[in-house]
Amino acid sequence: MKYLCLIYDEERKIDALSKAEMAAVMGEYNAFTQSIKGSGQWLAGHALKRVATATTVRVRAGRTTTTDGPFAETKEQLGGFYLIEARDLNEALQIAARIPSAKLGSVEVRPIEQFD
């Protein structure tokens, strides 16, 4: 099955990291990405730019409204994702737990809908 791992982090916490700490996190991410590419479970994955760069589009009654940001009052923001291939939810959760941000923020694991 395919699962999307949505990575939520507190941008404020990330900003507070020192250069050395940030480098360590990036190193962990590189190692993690390499390992799931090696095991053939990596399908896609990207980090996202800061939430301040986000724009939200809505179409209502034929009218398009464009606003800045998602105005969610949550502490954690969507910061990136991995699309992975896993045998079942248990395996997907094991992989998600290895994403470095699982220790800092949280990772939401969602199965991909297959239309047939």
Partner: peptide
Amino acid sequence: REAGIPYAVPEAGE
């Protein structure tokens, strides 16, 4: 069914 919760006894680690 949808999330793929396996019909399995968890592995030793978990």
